[in-house]
């Protein structure tokens, strides 16, 4: 089994076998990050460009560390310090980057479909590091890797995703992936944060946190995107927290060995209470560790030889 594609744009396009190949490869890469010399020579002479049009700490650092641990050269471009502020279009930026012959371009953009457009225009491999409210494939892969490592499987697990489902690329990619791998997914959030056609993705919808997390194996809390509060999709953070904050009070509704996940950054006391975020159920930092391995796996699988 080899990954026969140029780009990783979303989980929607990936087959179950491709997801398994990526997760298995990532499992083997974990060990490299525990060595004293955290570097293998595999991608020597390859260049990875991180092109970030939106703020990011975790994802950008994770891609950079992943590329460096494989000995690739990395260049980071963030929109705020690039020619974007002079009015250069995405396409012109991409064509200029292409002219410098990198091998992989990792892109995060606020417009859904931006990585797909780029993939069609340049010969380099494109990895989607989050496009608008559309997909965030590497986050879903690292989430699935973390669940599989802790539970030993993905099939037949009950997984609740809670928060702003409508604006969450993390939720969308995870739903595609988890359904493909045979898990049952429930979602919950305020009505304004649940997309109208979400049932068509094969998930069960609840309007309360307590119902959604009853007897589940995994709870994925999403970040409340405070920057969107101006759009009036929820009345106040306080009210949101009262209804949807995962805390000591409600966690006992889930299974005894429940995993609590969060893609970060956390709003402590809004979607998750500090004692849960730092508590024994939390695998939030495992997610971050596994993220490096997943991104190493993708860079390895995508960087081909002579086509």
């Amino acid at each position: 089994m080899i990954l026969e594609r140029k780009d990783i744009l979303g989980i929607k396009e990936l087959s179950k076998d491709e997801i398994l190949l990526i997760l298995d490869t990532a499992d083997s890469f974990i060990e490299i990050s525990t060595r004293e010399i955290k570097k293998v020579p595999t991608l020597r002479g390859k260049t990875v460009i991180n092109l970030f049009y939106e703020a990011s700490t975790r994802t950008r650092t994770s891609f950079e560390i992943a590329a460096k641990r494989l000995s690739a050269d990395t260049i980071n471009i963030s929109a705020s310090t690039s020619s974007v502020v002079k009015g250069e279009t995405l396409l012109d930026t991409a064509r200029n980057l292409e002219a410098m012959n990198p091998d992989v371009i990792v892109i995060r953009h606020s417009a859904a479909g931006a990585p797909h457009m780029l993939a069609g225009m340049v010969k380099q491999s494109i990895i989607n590091a989050g496009d608008g409210a559309h997909e965030h494939p590497t986050q879903a892969l690292l989430d699935m890797m973390t669940i599989r490592a802790k539970k030993g499987r993905l099939e037949n697990l009950n997984i609740a995703i809670v928060g702003d489902i409508a604006h969450s690329r993390v939720a969308r990619s995870n739903i595609y992936g988890l359904k493909k791998m045979g898990a049952q997914v429930t979602v919950a959030g305020p009505a304004t944060m649940i997309p109208r056609d979400i049932e068509q993705m094969g998930v069960t919808v609840y309007s309360s946190l307590d119902e959604a997390i009853k007897e589940v194996d995994v709870i994925m809390m999403l970040r409340i995107q405070i920057e969107r509060q101006q759009q009036n999709i929820f009345p106040s953070l306080r009210e949101y927290a009262q209804r949807f904050c995962l805390s000591k009070k409600n966690i006992s509704l889930a299974k005894e060995d429940v995993l609590v996940m969060h893609p970060g950054p956390i709003n402590r006391g809004v979607e998750i209470s500090p004692d849960i975020a730092d508590g024994p159920y939390s695998v939030i930092l495992d997610q971050v560790t596994n993220g490096v391995a997943v991104r190493m796996a993708l860079l390895y699988l995508l960087t081909g030889g002579k086509a």
Partner: peptide, 23 residues
């Protein structure tokens, strides 16, 4: 020891060998 990541022919083919665990 899995030596795949140290092979000298890795980037010469498009067939990516599966990476096994080093322990």
């Amino acid at each position: 020891l899995d030596v795949t990541l140290y092979r000298d022919d890795l980037l010469r083919t498009n067939k990516k060998p599966r990476i096994g665990k080093t322990d």
